[in-house]
């Protein structure tokens, strides 16, 4: 009998030891959309001479990669032979109010680089106009000097290059890559 009591008490201890508190809520998860995302890429072009109207193009995918398709993916329409100052804004619009992620990229400028690639025939020359702490360009702001009317694709990429940034685009991983259809009229 003594033995049985002993065995049972050992079992009880073992069972109670196993009952860890469930720290996470199973039945009421957090909405995944509240996680950190870049939902919106916006590029605003301002005429360097202050004459032409501003041009804005954006890509919006509120629920992030996967799920629903992007709600906006604009064409960039610029005036031929003009010079624009471009400025990029990154937002997380799944949050209310929206979070401005551009600030974070700027702070971590030494790890980030925007790259601009144009398909052949698109008459534009793009120069990054901002610098990080190591005097390497970031590309949040840039100057677009346009030539004659043409059509093509402007690929805008944000490269994440922690500790390996040299100003070249080929290293690191891709945080953003968007192919904007671009018309110079």
């Amino acid at each position: 009998m003594k033995k049985l009591v002993m065995i049972l008490s050992v079992v009880c201890i073992a069972l109670t030891a196993c009952k860890k508190e469930k720290k996470k809520e199973v039945t009421n998860p957090t909405n995944p959309n509240e996680e950190e995302l870049i939902t919106t890429f916006k590029i605003v072009f301002t005429d360097a001479n202050g004459v032409l109207p501003n041009v804005e193009a954006q890509f919006v995918d509120i629920d992030g990669p996967g799920g629903n398709n992007p709600t906006a993916f604009d064409t960039i329409r610029l005036v031929a032979n003009a010079t624009y100052n471009a400025s990029i804004t990154l937002l997380n619009e799944s949050l209310i109010p929206a979070e401005d992620i551009t600030v974070e990229v700027e702070e971590e400028g030494v790890d980030h680089l925007f790259c601009f690639d144009l398909t052949n025939g698109l008459n534009a020359v793009i120069t990054r106009t901002d610098l990080d702490a190591n005097n390497l360009p970031i590309g949040i702001t840039s100057q677009w000097v346009l030539g004659a009317a043409s059509t093509g694709t402007a690929t805008i990429r944000l490269r994440h290059q922690p500790g390996i940034k040299t100003g070249q685009c080929d290293v690191g991983e891709t945080d953003i890559e968007l192919d904007f259809h671009t018309e110079i009229q």
Partner: peptide, 9 residues
């Protein structure tokens, strides 16, 4: 392929 802000997948 699916279009995302990180490119096409």
């Amino acid at each position: 392929p699916m279009l995302t802000i990180i490119g096409a997948f």
